[in-house]
Amino acid sequence: MHEMSLCEGVIQLIEQQADEQQFTSVNTVCLEIGTLAGVEIEAMRFSFDAIAKGTIADAAKLEIISVQGLAECPLCKQQTEVTARYDLCPQCGHYPLDILAGEEMRIKELEVQ
């Protein structure tokens, strides 16, 4: 499962931060995940609990901010919400659209102690 390795990535980045920023426990992990990123949010939560066990982020609360897909038509410049990468421009029918948002897979913030 894809989400498992993403969570491993999250924990690795947190451990690296812990070294640099001198903290010993994590209360909250806040992620930003775009709807076009191909990440299953429920699977992410499930994996996080499993992967975080015994690490610095054990018992941390996981917050996920979902970012809606947004694209712009390169021809008519119409901006539109998209649910798939290959959506057509609702105004002129052109594709592909330039994706402006929705591909995020980011650690946004940590609350640490």
Binding site: Q17, N27, R106, I107, E109, E111, V112
Partner: peptide, 10 residues
């Protein structure tokens, strides 16, 4: 407790 703004790609 403090908030760290990380903004790092997973």
């Amino acid at each position: 407790a403090r908030i760290l703004r990380i903004e790092q790609d997973i």
